[in-house]
């Protein structure tokens, strides 16, 4: 069953009105669909009847003789030369003189015909390859878009899963006098099932020389803060730390960051500069 669009294109094609840019694609369609071929054949017959019925004028009588005369003249020079060649007896040299240019001309003609044919064949192959290339590029673009959409969906689902399975905490400076530790965002994502979390912060000053930041998880059932490891911030004040506490956490009620001297401690000894409860 042909679509209206195909019928429309077939009508325009039969009337030589299909734009050049659409002809190649339509011809490919035509090769693949016998039903479309039949339609075009019928529509061409319709076109012929329209043309023949629209005006029925007879050309002036003198036209035929002038056309036949023009054709006769176009043949004449060749006939005269042929006649001369058959009536005289040329020498071998003359024959050679005649034969060489004619042979060259024949070779050149053959070469031109072959080149033209070869060029047309290559053009057809090139057009087909271009069309295939275009189609494949389109497919790749579509697949890329689908992949991006799927990745976005996966990220969204993972994020939801993490939020549902765990805890989010926003950490803040413990007091206005806590010093320069006023990062714009400090967030902790905690996955209870996997017993791991993610600390994300920005605009945090680097720890003073000889000191280091240490993250703590406050579990009411553990009887005290549990170390989740030390960390450093990058030159731009940001950090993205995946952490695993030193023992199992039953309830991550709160998270805190202390500033320790020398290195990691089993219990916080330095000042607690940031803290926040799980939401």
């Amino acid at each position: 069953m042909l679509t209206e669009h195909q019928e429309e294109q077939a009508s325009l094609y039969a009337l030589d009105l299909l734009p050049e840019s659409e002809v190649a694609a339509f011809q490919r369609d035509l090769l693949a669909k016998p039903e479309l071929q039949q339609l075009v054949e019928d529509l061409r017959l319709c076109r012929e009847v329209v043309v023949l019925e629209s005006t029925t004028l007879r050309p002036p009588d003198h036209l035929k003789s002038s056309i036949l005369q023009a054709i006769h003249e176009s043949k004449a020079p060749l006939s005269k030369k042929t006649a001369q060649a058959t009536t005289s007896k040329p020498s071998s040299l003359t024959l050679l003189r005649l034969a060489v240019p004619w042979s060259l001309a024949a070779c050149l003609t053959l070469l031109a015909v072959w080149l033209q044919h070869e060029g047309q064949t290559r053009q057809i192959v090139l057009n087909r390859l271009n069309a295939e290339n275009l189609a494949q590029r389109k497919t790749i673009t579509e697949l890329r878009e689908k992949t991006e959409t799927l990745n976005a969906n996966i990220a969204q689902l993972e994020s939801r899963n993490l939020v549902q399975a765990g805890t989010i905490a926003q950490l803040r400076a413990t007091s206005p006098q806590a010093g320069p530790w006023t990062p714009s965002t400090v967030s902790v994502l905690w996955d209870k099932t996997r017993q791991e979390g993610l600390l994300v912060l920005s605009q945090m000053p680097a720890a003073e020389p000889g000191k280091i930041y240490q993250l703590w998880v406050i579990d009411p059932e553990a009887g005290g803060p549990i170390s989740a490891g030390t960390f450093e911030v990058q030159a731009d004040g940001s950090a993205r730390i995946l952490f695993r506490p030193s023992q199992r956490i039953r309830q991550a009620a709160q998270f805190a960051v202390s500033l320790e001297e020398g290195g990691a401690k089993e219990q916080p000894q330095g000042p607690v500069i940031l803290a926040g409860a799980g939401l």
Partner: peptide, 10 residues
Amino acid sequence: RIRRGMLRLR
């Protein structure tokens, strides 16, 4: 219009 006319002829 062209499509309808051609199809009607056909």
